[in-house]
Design a protein around this nucleic acid. Structure first.
Lengths: 196, 196, 196, 196
DNA sequence: ACTGGCGGGACAACCCGTTTTT
DNA sequence: AAAAACGGGTTGTCCCGCCAGT
């Protein structure tokens, strides 16, 4: 990685949790600068606007959380087990995710400022990516006869996501990790329902 | 209603959708003033700060959406039918809710600015209220033998809420009303599962 | 005193120390209202502008302090003794004057906002009045042969005033009552110098 | 001088007479901006608050007036002559001082807004400095046998200052330079009184 | 008739994201 | 790449007019 690239990455790493916690318009460039040794010059030398930085920060956040979540899911094995493990991973990593300001998808999707922006686009792409991952687990499970064939993989993936996101919101707002665990066990029983 | 009270209500009514759409720090007092005929004098004469106004606006939004949603649910009848009707009501009223900027609970809960504020408190109270309503429907159903007695009313209510909220987020972000309907039919099948 | 007159006086009495302490532009109408039970309506019903109120407040302050200072000076007796007593009176009443925010003449004269205003005029008239009082004491003393005849009463009066005012400024700013007492003893020796 | 330092100095130079004439709360940042080619950004880039700027402006004013006054006083020579020259310097430079808005010490000390502020502190330090200068002239005179040894240098200095300040106030308010001259000639005779 | 207090809107101080200069 | 300047935006306060209710 070149030096320029490195600075860019450093800025993003510093900006990411701040944007995730405070939202786009709640975050000022100065907020990001504080305690980072950065200067406005270096930020605007690397990003053409606050929005571009925020977009890069979102991607960084998403990748970070994704890595965290997916790292604890075996790459192989029974599809149902993998789904259960994936859901469980949100519970296991809840505290770490909270520390970074919560789920970046949930935050960015509801951060109302970025309507019509390039962030919105990235959020949608991220959800699609997430969905696709789940869909491919299910499809593979169906091919291997581990999951009922007449189940809509798309719908199940969506249900999975929406349960996690809804639970994350509730857990964070009400400060009740239990609510997330409730959703996880619900998903687990859902998975059991499609098991062949 | 006195003149002052009326102005106060008018300000809240004008501010509510703007806050709901743009979030707290994404909304400037000027945004609210624009096209409302209001002036700063009248706003700050009636509210001591932007935050106080935002809190009042949240309450207004919540009450408005609640009325919308609950008005289409029969006050009497079978508990399961009522739960299904309640879930369905989110689908029926989706467009109207969208017009107001989406679910105020979802918006306010994820609006990262209001950590530690009086809005946060109101959001939590609103969720509790919503939960309590569902719980009481279930409890009544259990008493009348319409719903299995061994079901946790609390957990079911939470699951209900988190499915709706997660779906609302997905539907809004991806502009796919279908996702909400998916959650509704999921809830419907969940209700069928607890029917006696 | 009619009721209207009474309200007017009450407003002035409440406003006077605030203006004396905070100056014209440093004082907001709201400052005066606070903790007085007054309302803006009543203020603007009785005074056409903030400036008019400030002018009335200055007069009130001046009269109050004058009364305080002159009340301890015998109306008759030796002119030199009366001058010494007058000077001493500033020392005796220093704490009370301080409580009201200091010498209104000094405050108003140096309150730079009221250049070209009706307050400026009132300040000048007040100084003239003060000077005249001292001049008349001296003149009477000269007529009665208590004071040297070749002394300029005007100049002596001016010197008297300017010593008191300068000392008041120093004493207040540096929080050293001693500085006022120094000026008083200086004036005392000055008086001794013109005694016949 | 670096560019930043230069801008800072320029801002202070522009702000100083405005603050001296209009007082702290009577001066708005916009007042300073007007006709100076300055922008808000540059002001707040160089000063963290209005108060900090006002404090810098006071120091600038004080230094400027001090230079004006003390430049016409010989560094050597008879102590009494120097004291007389110093007093006289206020008369000679009265018009120039007036043009800058009057004596910054008098103005700042009576500008009621800055109670408890860092300006107040600077004012006190300035008076102390002024006093010390006079005291050292006297002390030196006493050592050289030009001034009576039993005179309190401190008290004389205070008397000197308070006469000048009181006279400055009177002269400015009543628009009578004569009053200042009266004080100067009074000080002159005071000096004669301590001459050995 | 009068006064309490709501409303008006200009303006306050200060901060923002960004561009220009060094 | 950093520092400084920019100027329009932010929330909130100001003084004051004016109307509603006694």
């Amino acid at each position: 990685m070149g030096r320029a690239k490195k600075t860019r990455e450093y800025i993003i790493a510093k900006a990411a949790p701040v944007f995730n916690r405070q939202g786009f318009s709640g975050t000022s460039i100065t907020d990001i600068l504080e305690g980072s040794g950065l200067t406005k010059g270096s930020v605007y030398g690397n990003f053409s606007s606050k929005e571009e930085l925020a977009a890069a920060a979102f991607e960084y956040n998403f990748k970070r959380i994704s890595t965290l979540i997916f790292s604890s899911v075996e790459r192989d094995g029974n599809a149902c087990d993998r789904l259960v493990a994936l859901a469980g991973s949100y519970g296991v990593n809840f505290d770490q995710v909270s520390e970074l300001g919560g789920c970046p998808i949930l935050n960015a999707a509801t951060d109302s400022d970025d309507m019509n922006s390039l962030i919105r686009e990235k959020v949608n792409r991220s959800i699609e990516l997430w969905k696709k991952t789940i869909v491919s687990i299910i499809r593979k499970g169906q091919e291997l006869g581990e999951i009922k064939a007449d189940i809509s993989a798309e719908d199940f993936a969506l249900l999975f996501i929406l349960n996690i996101e809804g639970a994350l919101m509730l857990a964070k707002t009400m400060d009740e990790k239990r609510h997330l665990e409730l959703a996880i066990s619900h998903i687990t029983s859902l998975v059991d329902g499609i098991r062949k």
